[in-house]
Design a protein around this nucleic acid. Structure first.
Lengths: 174, 174
DNA sequence: GCTGGACATGTCAATAGTGGAAGGTAGGGT
DNA sequence: ACCCTACCTTCCACTATTGACATGTCCAGC
């Protein structure tokens, strides 16, 4: 039921059409949640039936602009504050690490080096992004900034961990 | 197609029945990948049809023990070394952070404190787990250890980030 | 006036994942 | 002998997610 809340959250910030929301999923939200067009339009229909959103305006080309309702806003608040986020339960990278015993130590170190290089690139990318954004103190940018900081710390953690892991393999296995 | 490789990886370590694998998904693998029983038995059937695994023994209660084939091992290697892991694209916790502007700053700080406390608990838990395990230098324990270290660093990162984020909100919003 | 690209939605088939019901066997402990 | 628990598999209905196809409209620039 998370896509539902992602849509509610986006519409709580500003009303928009399915097309608008899709753009927002592809850009601002892309590192946090994704949705395909078919999923999105389907979910908009369900949310409207449940009266959590409503059509607030109609425009050219059949455009339907949706806005969140009071019931929707209350559902969003409930999700934010009352439901505990389930711990992430899937990590494909780590799954591979578990099975690295199946390849040679050299290959395992190669895998970790590549991953470390990727994380390093991400750190630089996010630092550049941060530098390029004009941060004011408005709410949306505050919380976006917290999320960006999370990304930077995550990427730095993975970069350092991968380096450490490759060194550990070398120390233990040669 | 990741469950497929998770199963291949487990069977590469040791042969086992669907029931055995399910236990391993619920324990050792639970923080990295999950599978329900229905998904697992279905996947075993598909893997057998594709000749990536085979029934290596039959036991009481209709037990079928599966073992990885050479083709399966080669598929596993290919997945480990040739396919690049897609970047994680969903994080429900961060999604909530994006929408924290919908609640009051106090509530937002409460959310972050709770998350920080959870991460702190995880750090302690993982440290205790590490202390309790008798690490030898065998392959499976080496790579499990790398994964555990990842978990420790991840939890510590989230703990520190949550603290920083709550302080930042207080500084900016009071 | 034409045309290409952006805008906009709808629908379908397929795979992945969840949750639960149903049915049965083997073996250790009392 | 009995029973309880662990062992073990199959099947089904539902939701979530992906990717592709289909269809059409508006508008800016030439």
């Amino acid at each position: 039921m998370t896509l539902r809340h992602a849509v509610l959250g986006l519409l709580a910030t500003a009303p928009g059409s399915g097309y608008d929301l899709l753009k927002r999923f592809e850009t601002a939200m892309s590192s946090v949640w994704t949705a395909t067009q078919s999923q999105l339009y389907g979910e908009l229909g369900k949310l409207e039936s449940a009266d959590l959103i409503e059509v607030s305006a109609e425009g050219p080309r059949g455009r339907k602009e949706y806005a969140i309702t009071d019931a929707g806003r209350s559902e969003l608040r409930k999700w934010l504050l009352e439901e505990k986020p389930p711990a992430a339960r899937r990590n494909e990278m780590l799954l591979r690490v578990y099975f690295l015993g199946e390849v040679t130590p050299e290959e395992a170190r190669g895998f970790l080096s590549r991953h470390g290089a990727f994380a390093k690139g991400l750190v630089d990318e996010l630092a550049a992004l941060e530098a390029s954004v004009d941060w004011d103190d408005s709410d949306p940018s505050l919380y976006g900034r917290l999320a960006l900081e999370w990304g930077k710390r995550y990427a730095a953690m993975e970069r350092d961990w991968a380096k450490w892991a490759a060194e550990t393999i070398r120390a233990v296995r040669g």
